[in-house]
Structures are given as C-alpha cells and as structure tokens.
Simulated assay, not measured.
Amino acid sequence: MKFIHRFAYYMLGFLIGGVFLLFIFQNKRTEFCYMPNCRVLKSIRAKGIVISKEAQAVFDQKAITLQDVKNSLDNGDVDFSRSNKPNKEGGKVYIIEGNTSKNEPIELEIINYSEKAILKNVKKV
C-alpha cells in the first residue's frame, strides 16, 4: 500500500475519533487543567474565598468589586516568582495579576490553605 493511502486512512480515523470526542466532551463541561497557572486558579476557585478585613476595606471604597476578583481568578496570571511561598500560619501565598471591568490592572494576594483560600489584599497596580 502506498504511503498516501496509509496516510489517508490514518487521517480518516483521526477525524472520526476527533468528531466522536467532540460530541462526548461537549456537554460534560470538562476542563483540561494541566499547566501550573490553571491548576492554582482552579484550586482557589474550588475552595471558595474568605475575604479578609483589609480586602473588605478596599471593596468598601468601591474602586474594585468582587466581580473583578472573580474575573481575575478565571482569567488572571499567577506570578510564580513572588508566589508559592509558605505562610506563618500554614498555607501558601499566591500573587495573582488580573484586570478590573474597566481594564485596569489589579493584584490579588491570596493565602491558599488545604481547606480554604483567604483573599488577604487587593490593590490596583
């Protein structure tokens, strides 16, 4: 069998398998999260966030909203050069860079424990 025929059969099987997987995973809301940034953000989102007094003071000024924090946890970037450092009380400190709804850069400081995540501070950069 010629190479072109073998390649055509391979591509046909690959396309049929791709369409099959597309239909299976379309309704399951699966998320392939293997990169470190994605895994940290997913871990924090899954635990829920407890807001500290310092962060609540920033929210009371109405410069940054809770929706901005949620969007940053969905689409933000973890600064690993300043993150993943142990905290005194346990847990690890993560610095997440994101944007507000007005596209202004913000920075979240989150302490990630095994059972909860605490939003320690929020500030505009």
Score class of each variant (00 low, 15 high):
residue 68 D to Q: 07
residue 53 K to R: 13
residue 72 S to N: 06
residue 103 N to G: 08
residue 97 E to A: 09
residue 46 A to S: 10
residue 17 G to L: 11
residue 6 R to H: 09
residue 109 E to M: 12
residue 85 K to G: 02
residue 19 V to R: 13
residue 81 S to L: 15
residue 50 V to I: 12
residue 61 Q to S: 14
residue 28 K to W: 04
residue 82 R to T: 07
residue 123 K to R: 15
residue 84 N to A: 10
residue 113 Y to C: 00
residue 98 G to A: 09
residue 17 G to V: 09
residue 70 K to N: 13
residue 95 I to Q: 14
residue 71 N to Q: 08
residue 108 L to W: 01
residue 37 N to Q: 10
residue 93 V to C: 04
residue 100 T to K: 14
residue 58 V to L: 11
residue 40 V to A: 06
residue 124 K to D: 09
residue 94 Y to R: 05
residue 46 A to V: 02
residue 32 F to V: 12
residue 111 I to P: 00
residue 112 N to G: 06
residue 31 E to Y: 11
residue 119 L to N: 01
residue 58 V to H: 09
residue 66 L to G: 09
residue 29 R to G: 07
residue 74 D to H: 13
residue 37 N to T: 10
residue 80 F to A: 15
residue 85 K to C: 05
residue 75 N to R: 13
residue 106 I to R: 11
residue 3 F to I: 05
residue 54 E to L: 11
residue 67 Q to C: 07
residue 78 V to H: 03
residue 112 N to C: 03
residue 101 S to F: 04
residue 97 E to G: 14
residue 55 A to S: 08
residue 110 I to L: 08
residue 27 N to Y: 08
residue 20 F to A: 15
residue 50 V to R: 11
residue 85 K to R: 15
residue 23 F to T: 04
residue 14 F to M: 12
residue 7 F to D: 11
residue 16 I to K: 01
residue 18 G to T: 00
residue 40 V to F: 06
residue 21 L to H: 05
residue 49 I to L: 15
residue 6 R to C: 02
residue 56 Q to G: 09
residue 53 K to N: 06
residue 93 V to M: 02
residue 79 D to N: 15
residue 3 F to E: 05
residue 78 V to M: 07
residue 88 K to I: 05
residue 113 Y to R: 06
residue 119 L to C: 03
residue 82 R to P: 02
residue 45 R to G: 08
residue 61 Q to V: 10
residue 59 F to A: 07
residue 116 K to Q: 03
residue 79 D to G: 09
residue 47 K to W: 04
residue 65 T to I: 06
residue 121 N to C: 01
residue 7 F to W: 10
residue 54 E to K: 14
residue 76 G to V: 14
residue 122 V to C: 02
residue 60 D to C: 06
residue 68 D to R: 05
residue 116 K to S: 02
residue 121 N to D: 01
residue 104 E to H: 13
residue 109 E to H: 07
residue 110 I to N: 01
residue 30 T to H: 12
residue 52 S to H: 06
residue 89 E to D: 08
residue 29 R to L: 03
residue 119 L to G: 02
residue 19 V to Q: 04
residue 114 S to V: 01
residue 5 H to W: 10
residue 73 L to V: 07
